[in-house]
Write a protein that binds this DNA or RNA. Structure first.
Length: 237
DNA sequence: AAATCGGTCAACCGCGACTTT
DNA sequence: GAAAGTCGCGGTTGACCGATT
């Protein structure tokens, strides 16, 4: 194909038809030869990409479902940016599509989640004595994605997260909710007037097993997943 | 109405791994 | 075993579009 003037940019309908018909006849391989045989002035690479990401049968083109979104989020945490591997777990979705979705929808949320998770763990560690490390790890991990700040004051806050009163945090749309709210209330009572003091201590009862009940699946909508944030707000005391 | 900005997504690029000759 | 060809992956770009100023 060298020396020939190759087309770039958006594919035309005719090109799509031509490519599809040749891939169905010759199979998904030898893309350079296939492009030549099909009379397409495209690189083999470009043909392959067009086929894999758009023309291939059984591709889903609609918006991602909540389940897909959660799966992507979870797999990204486990595998990192291994989009091809992640795509294999989501039939009908392409690595490119998932990568784009991650970058435009989920990346920020992941950052927020990490920050909140870290701060939460930090606060737990600095405010409890009877809390074993295993429980803390589990909580900080499983808490991700469920905190939400009652945000009417959010925009006007000009300092770090530790100035946000605990009573203004809420947890929504998950089976954890009521227990967590109670827990936060207890924490708040434990803090008393010392809520700005990260070195203050308090105790509360926590049963990880009880806590974990009903955790199989839950809807993240209406939670941190939709929260706008400013990461300057997430500094520690 | 026009300009600007930000989000989205299809497509491209570079590179390493794998296969074929 | 080496060179050439091909494939697959992840990062990046740029066109497009709607919202905002």
């Amino acid at each position: 194909m060298q020396g020939e003037h190759l087309r770039k940019g958006t594919w035309l309908q005719d090109e799509d038809k031509q490519l599809t018909s040749f891939v169905l006849r010759l199979g998904e391989r030898r893309w350079d030869s296939l492009a030549k045989l099909a009379g397409l002035r495209r690189s083999g690479k470009s043909c392959r990409l067009r086929w894999m990401n758009y023309l291939r049968p059984n591709l889903k083109h609609g918006p991602f479902s909540v389940e897909e979104e959660q799966l992507i989020f979870q797999l990204q945490q486990q595998l990192g940016n291994k989009w091809a591997k992640i795509a294999r777990k989501l039939p009908g979705r392409t690595d490119n599509e998932i990568k784009n979705y991650w970058r435009t929808h989920l990346r920020k949320r992941a950052q927020v989640q990490q920050e909140v998770s870290r701060d939460f763990k930090y606060n737990m560690e600095s405010t409890t004595q009877d809390f074993n490390q295993k429980s803390i790890d589990m909580v900080s991990k499983d808490y991700t994605g469920i905190f939400c700040y009652r945000d009417s004051e959010w925009e006007t806050m000009d300092s770090s997260i530790d100035t946000l009163p605990l009573s203004n945090w809420e947890l929504r749309s998950s089976p954890y909710e009521s227990r967590i709210l109670n827990w936060i209330a207890e924490l708040q009572n434990g803090y008393g007037e010392k809520e700005h003091d990260c070195n203050s201590t308090g105790t509360f009862n926590y049963n990880p097993q009880e806590f974990a009940e009903g955790c199989d699946s839950w809807d993240c909508s209406g939670s941190l997943w939709e929260m706008n944030y400013d990461d300057t707000l997430f500094s520690k005391c």
